[in-house]
Design a protein around this nucleic acid. Structure first.
Length: 509
RNA sequence: GCGGGUGUAGCUUAAUGGUAAAGCUCCAGCCUUCCAAGCUGGCCACGAGGGUUCGAUUCCCUUCACCCGCUCCA
């Protein structure tokens, strides 16, 4: 049974997981709100990540627990930080449009093959994507009536006045490419009430930089030593050209990033280590189907900018809208010493690490960065949990792992009669001290089970006449719909056990 | 950003140039001893703006959002 993304989006809205932002005004492209259940689900994933990273970080290769501390840095930082990180320069990609084909290209992705030394009507430049095969280039040249080209030049080096001689990558006539337009993918604002260039600021496009900016503060205040990690969860903002696919690509999203600072000689070991850890994490939160994929890029796959480092290993999920392809959930990147070096240069503050034991040893730490999308993680959890079951009244249920489920249990008096409600209320008040739980009294029991199925509540405790006699309740399991009776005073322990199982799974994974 | 499509209640679907209909959900009550049952009642909609018209949800224009395909994704 194939899952339709439309149905998932509809359920998310109907049951309060995810709403369009500014819904009553017709929405706003690229922004979404998390509803009452969505925020619980997101918080659960966030908290499990924080626990896995900061509270109970894994045992390192040497048998001792690794050291990771937390951080919550400001979304707005000194704009110089974004100049240093390369985002001001590199994040604003100039684009050129083709008037003939209506296509848009990144200027720095195009190269021009000039037919002759003199540009002119009979000596045009023919533009190609930089990755175009030589064979294809020849083919197209021939088609346009040329034998060979004289020289290849990046479009970025071509003066705009010569664009009139260029035939676009998909065009037939020269002169259809527009002059490059700047696209800044960072959100801008102004710190202070006056809108001027001087107080222009940026909303962070990634949480990572806040960690690099605080690298020295953390070292000086927390008694951590290399190797160690700094973890942060928070919102990030990117002016995506085209937000798409529900919350998968939105302009405001949430990241869970950890920067692992280590000696340059140990990057390979730590990259492999964190890749394993991160795989285990996603498996432990319930992404176990063959829709999740772990892909360590081969050396040959590395792009030019990463040739100095180990590149990136990806954790990907096959969302209904990407299928049969996969979408990125998390990337484990080797950032080399790029960021610290850049900030050292731009700020003038020494960021080299001095070995506390042998003070003659100084080096710039390298960074392994497991960077995961929290919003994307939530979407993957929902897609993974969405299970069609024609046999049950709701027709569908969300098969969340109990540790992730927004509500751990519902307490249901079998009838709204006097005898059942007080007992249910008592159990509810007891359980809610420890777990997010619902008390649902209205309507018949079947409807209530169906409602809980749709939001993925793993357990329902029902109070009936027997409860009055022997203080037992029924437990109804979401997945099997089977029931068993347990003593009312064992309910909290029962739930506790189910949650602990989740934790044990994480540990064992 | 381009091309195509879609927009009527929370959902699914009607009808109409002249007071917008129904089923399910939801809410209230009755009834109900375990899986959306039954009865009664209730809330809620023409995405937004403009134009044509005596009158527009319907025709026209613009815009917004969503979906599909391109493009983009440091």
């Amino acid at each position: 049974m194939t899952v339709d993304m439309k149905d998932i989006v509809a359920l998310c809205k109907r049951r309060g997981f995810i709403f369009p932002a500014s819904d009553i005004y017709g929405g706003i492209n690229g922004f979404w709100d998390f509803g009452p259940l969505g925020v619980e689900l997101k918080n659960n994933l966030r908290d499990l990540w924080w626990k896995a990273m900061v509270i109970t970080p894994p045992i390192g290769p040497d048998g001792t627990p690794v050291e990771i501390v937390g951080l919550d840095s400001s979304i707005i930082q000194n704009p110089k930080a974004w100049v240093a990180s390369g985002h001001v320069g590199g994040f604003s990609d100039p684009m050129v449009d083709c008037r003939e084909t209506k296509k848009r290209y990144r200027q720095d992705h195009l190269v021009v093959c000039w037919i002759g030394g003199q540009h002119g009507k009979d000596m045009p430049g023919i533009a190609f994507h930089e990755d175009e095969e030589e064979q294809e280039i020849e083919k197209r040249l021939k088609k346009l009536g040329y034998k060979e080209y004289y020289k290849k030049q990046p479009l970025t080096e071509v003066p705009v006045e010569n664009y009139m001689y260029i035939i676009g990558p998909d065009a037939k006539e020269p002169g259809t490419l527009t002059e490059p337009k700047a696209f800044n993918l960072m959100f801008e604002s102004h710190a202070g009430p006056i809108q001027s260039e001087e107080n222009k600021v940026y909303l962070r496009p990634e949480t990572a930089q806040g960690i690099f900016l605080n690298y020295k503060n953390v070292l000086d205040s927390s008694r951590v030593r290399v190797p160690f990690g700094v973890a942060q969860i928070g919102k990030a903002f990117r002016n995506e050209v085209n937000p798409r696919n529900f919350i998968f690509r939105s302009r405001e999203f949430e990241q869970m990033e950890m920067e692992w600072f280590c000696h340059p000689d140990e990057v390979k070991m730590w990259r492999d280590f964190w890749f394993e850890q991160r795989k285990n994490f996603w498996t432990s939160v319930g992404l176990r189907s063959d829709n999740i994929r772990f892909r360590q890029h081969g050396q040959d796959e590395l792009s030019h900018y990463a040739k100095a480092g180990l590149g990136t290993a990806d954790i990907e999920y096959r969302f209904p809208f990407t299928a049969p392809d996969f979408g990125e959930l998390e990337g484990i990147a080797h950032r080399c010493d790029f960021d610290l070096t850049a900030h050292q240069e731009h700020s003038g503050v020494k960021l080299e690490y001095m070995d506390p034991v042998d003070t003659s040893k100084r080096f710039m730490p390298h960074v392994i960065e497991p960077a995961a999308g929290l919003s994307r993680g939530v979407l993957a959890l929902i897609c993974e949990a969405y299970t069609i079951d024609k046999e049950r009244p709701s027709g569908v249920y969300l098969n969340f792992h109990p540790a992730l489920a927004p509500k751990k249990a519902a307490i249901l008096p079998l009838t709204a009669k006097e005898e059942h409600v007080p007992l249910a209320t008592k159990l509810y008040l007891e359980l809610r001290e420890e777990f997010p739980v619902d008390l649902d009294i209205k309507q018949n029991i079947g409807k209530r089970y169906a409602r809980q199925d749709e939001v993925g509540t793993p357990y329902c405790f029902t109070i009936d006449n027997d409860t009055i006699q022997d203080k037992t309740v029924t437990v109804r399991d979401r997945n099997t719909m089977k029931q068993e009776r347990i003593s009312m005073d064992k309910v909290a322990a029962y739930l506790r056990e189910k949650m602990k199982t989740a934790d044990a799974v994480r540990k064992a994974a």
